[in-house]
Nucleic acid binder design. Sequence first.
DNA 1: GAGGTTAGTCTAAAAAATAGACTAAGTCCA
DNA 2: TGGACTTAGTCTATTTTTTAGACTAACCTC
Lengths: 163, 163
Amino acid sequence: MSWEDVTQQQCPIARASAVLGDRWSLLILSDFFLGVRRFDDFQERLNIPRTTLANRLKRLQDHDVIYKRAYQGQPIRYEYRLTQKGRDLFPVITTLASWGDRYYFNESELPILRQHKLCGHDIQPVLTCPECHEPVDADSIAVRKRPEKPGLPTVKRGPIVYQ
Amino acid sequence: MSWEDVTQQQCPIARASAVLGDRWSLLILSDFFLGVRRFDDFQERLNIPRTTLANRLKRLQDHDVIYKRAYQGQPIRYEYRLTQKGRDLFPVITTLASWGDRYYFNESELPILRQHKLCGHDIQPVLTCPECHEPVDADSIAVRKRPEKPGLPTVKRGPIVYQ
DNA sequence: GAGGTTAGTCTAAAAAATAGACTAAGTCCA
DNA sequence: TGGACTTAGTCTATTTTTTAGACTAACCTC
């Protein structure tokens, strides 16, 4: 099975990995959420090779996560912006940043602070249930395969239990 | 700047990318949360090259995300388990799965369903503010650099604004 | 002792990432 | 009119990483 085949599996993480599964994409996305839009700014901030950056921005465009937009003419110059699909990666980047903050920095030494505009607190957002509003973690979720349906592809990678 | 240097930056996403920034790690983690523990199970489910899988499991161990545990003697065989640090990646995998679900599958065709044990609903968890309990997205967060402090390294990649 | 199981390692080939020079198309300055 | 600057890339040769697939170790069961 080629990597292309893997990414076409019946698995949302496989689809997401086709877009974000490499050294740089999460870092590039994180810079987008910090306001970065231009090729040279990404390149200098991340110290990413120019060829690699061009390839990544191309792939993010191909997957409709960002789009290219002229910000001046004469000479025409383009910048990159998040699409709605791209903006919807905010929870992924935020939870990853929280994890990195927790395990690689002391609380008083966090490099970036995130303030909730509504209530004014500096926060690390938490995952909650949209129905009962309780916090959610690995132990509070039961995972199962979608039932097989005629006409739909088989789900191969379901939950497993040993013994 | 080498990749090793990038990953030592004052940035939680850079640290996290040192662990998870590649084709396979998010998929491997996602399988861990589905209960997978053994080398051959990961290998068969993901169709990952055995060499690559061995390298990834090694790296996840080096970063204290998983640990190796004997599950039988004669012949002794090892399985892999998530550490607390690994279990704390649940919000990352879950939000990524939600994003993949939203953009790559119809609602009635989601491959994996997640039920909140407490209230019984099938859910896609949402990100909320731990202080005021309101949902949080990119627009509701204001980001800033930690103020420079003597004795602490400079934060180089802060938010930027054009014009 | 033949064949099976599990968790890897080994090797050569293919693919991807990298550093760094270069290009295009305009600007601004003198 | 020419030289230096800006920005968003491309080009090329080299290095690094990934890959496929055969092989190994150590013990089991028949």
